[in-house]
Nucleic acid binder design. Structure first.
Length: 507
RNA sequence: GGCGACGUCGCCAAGUGGCAAGGCAGAGGCCUGCAAAGCCUUUAUCCCCGGUUCGAAUCCGGGCGUCGCCUCCA
């Protein structure tokens, strides 16, 4: 089944046909490295990470290019505030950006060019534009002439005259038209600068994306992504300069993500209501953050709050619990076939690898409907749970293999969404707080925390055998306060440590 | 003022002409010493008013409300 994508240029869903069969060339606008990225930035990068992963899962060879804007007004301003060199500021936040993306589980780009390493290409494109009559020089600045490009406005659905009537910012008298934008800026004293045919200067904002994408992907590459606030003027200007310079279409499919909001308002630097990704990741595991964002379609606005993160945490638990339960059942060879076990539970288990993959793909093929894809995974979870409930691992190897197959599908498809299941089994590094508890309740005198927990569980088992519920519950409640959960299963008590004295999210 | 998006169960959310997915929360039941996890059951005619259609949450018109872009912004 073909993949369909919403193309901002046509405002409709179109069948996705890449330029070169089997290959996808995509470009996503990267960060300006003047600060840590915020959670809104993260949403956009996450969106395109999942799109890239799904295209790869679908069999495409994806070449993914993302710029690093490391020379810009905001970087210069920040450096001036802090009495540092712009390059130093850019280097610091470039590193921070990569670390944050790694922490979120975003795959690295195939290529991540920096603006400062693309200067010759930007100068060359500016020269091309001047030659073709699309740009003009004024006092060391070079401006693109929007009037020279008749199709200006086709992406954002505006026309030049409407834009000018709504203009409310000071007009630079040196521009031929108020909408003309800088391709090259003459450097002011103290600013980073490079030699150019128009004097010492630095590139304008939009230019790098046009140059890098053409160098790395060629023109009329497949997918250009970014958040919807980049449609105008950024992407509109990219189209103008690229198509004016090459005389060819720039991009086949424009994909734009919805903005993240806080309290139903746009989160932005200027409103000051933003949260940094790194701060959120200190409090919530990456899979939970990803899950929250993937529960909403990528083009819709998404309201972000800790309440919703907590909710996503519970959803994550539901998705990974069957994997934990299956491992536990296998380790204990738990076969709990019940008298009322049903034939349909077996049939569902047999069908689920295929039905889950089909439903997942059908949702994702429809403009990357991750919410629908998740629904397919929750259905798979129910099938697994139901089978485990009724049969355990099953009385013969045939079902054990079926269970493994279903679990593999679940892990694989969660992987396409970049939702790691690795955290699900973490249970090491018990806190030393268990030692006094074990001494008081189990008479354990050693210093090995794992042995202490074992002693506590043994004491609890003994107490339960003696029907001494108060003593048994003292162990469970004591451990609960330290971040452990005890669950009694047909194969004995299972203890899960969720970390710290405080659970990463309420359980 | 110009352009655009959205309004679906308590909360979140999918669904673009044919009996309204899913998650969270709630209720009842099963299981449990009690729990936890899990299973089963249970909760909507889709902002309002018109229209098109055999049939609309889905198409058209109007209204109300929310949000975004038009200025750096993911």
């Amino acid at each position: 089944m073909p993949i369909r994508v919403h193309n901002t240029l046509s405002r409709t869903k179109e069948e996705f046909t890449p330029r070169d069969s089997g290959k996808v060339a995509m470009y996503v606008c990267g960060p300006t490295v003047y600060n840590h990225i915020h959670i809104g930035n993260a949403r956009t990068f996450l969106t395109f990470d999942v799109i890239r992963r799904y295209l790869t899962y679908s069999g495409y060879d994806v070449r993914f290019v993302q710029n690093i804007t490391d020379v810009d007004d905001k970087i210069i301003a920040r450096a001036a505030e802090e009495g540092r060199e712009p390059a130093e500021v850019a280097a610091e936040y470039t590193l921070a950006f990569r670390q944050a993306m790694d922490a979120l589980g975003v795959e690295r780009p195939t290529v991540a060019p920096k603006a400062t390493q693309t200067i010759p290409g930007m100068i060359a494109m500016t020269e091309r534009l001047i030659e073709r009559g699309h740009a003009y020089v004024v006092d060391g600045d070079v401006y693109f002439s929007v009037r020279s490009f008749p199709e200006y406005g086709k992406l954002s659905g505006r026309n030049i005259d409407d834009l000018e009537s709504g203009a409310r910012v000071d007009v630079d008298e040196r521009k031929q038209d108020p909408l003309d934008f800088a391709l090259w800026k003459a450097a002011k004293p103290g600013e980073p600068h490079w030699a150019s045919p128009w004097g010492e200067g630095r590139p304008g904002w939009h230019l790098e994306c046009s140059v890098m994408s053409e160098e790395e992907l060629g023109v009329a590459f497949d997918i250009h992504g970014g958040a919807s606030d980049l449609i105008f003027p950024h992407h509109e200007n990219e189209i103008a300069q690229s198509e004016a310079a090459t005389g060819q279409p720039f991009v086949r499919y424009w994909l734009h993500g919805g903005l993240l909001q806080v309290n139903a308002e746009k989160m932005s630097k200027s409103l000051g209501n933003f949260m940094l990704l790194k701060d959120v990741l200190e409090r919530y595991p990456a899979p939970v953050v990803r899950l929250l964002m993937l529960q909403t379609h990528y083009r819709s606005p998404l309201d972000f709050s800790t309440d919703r993160l907590d909710e996503a945490g519970r959803s994550y638990e539901r998705l990974v619990t069957p994997l934990r339960n299956l491992e536990w059942a296998k380790r204990n060879r738990a076969i709990t076939e019940r008298a009322d076990a049903t034939r349909s539970a077996i049939e569902a288990l047999e069908c689920t690898p295929v039905t889950a993959r089909d439903a997942f793909a059908a949702a994702m093929d429809d403009d990357f409907n991750t919410a629908g894809a998740l629904a397919a995974l929750f259905d798979l979870v129910r099938v697994l749970n139901t089978f485990l409930e009724q049969y355990g691992i099953g009385a013969n190897a045939r079902y054990a293999a079926r269970l493994d197959e279903a679990a593999d599908v679940l892990r694989d498809l969660l992987g396409v969404l970049g939702v790691s299941t690795a955290d699900a089994a973490r249970a090491d590094e018990y806190p030393s707080d268990v030692l006094p508890l074990a001494r008081d309740l189990a008479g354990y005198a050693g210093s090995d925390t794992r042995a202490a927990v074992e002693a506590l569980l043994t004491a609890r088992t003994v107490a339960r055998t003696e029907r001494n519920w108060a003593a048994a519950d003292a162990v469970r409640d004591g451990l609960e306060r330290l971040g452990f959960t005890i669950e009694d299963t047909p194969s004995g008590a299972r203890v899960t440590f969720r970390g710290g004295g405080q659970a990463p999210w309420p359980t």
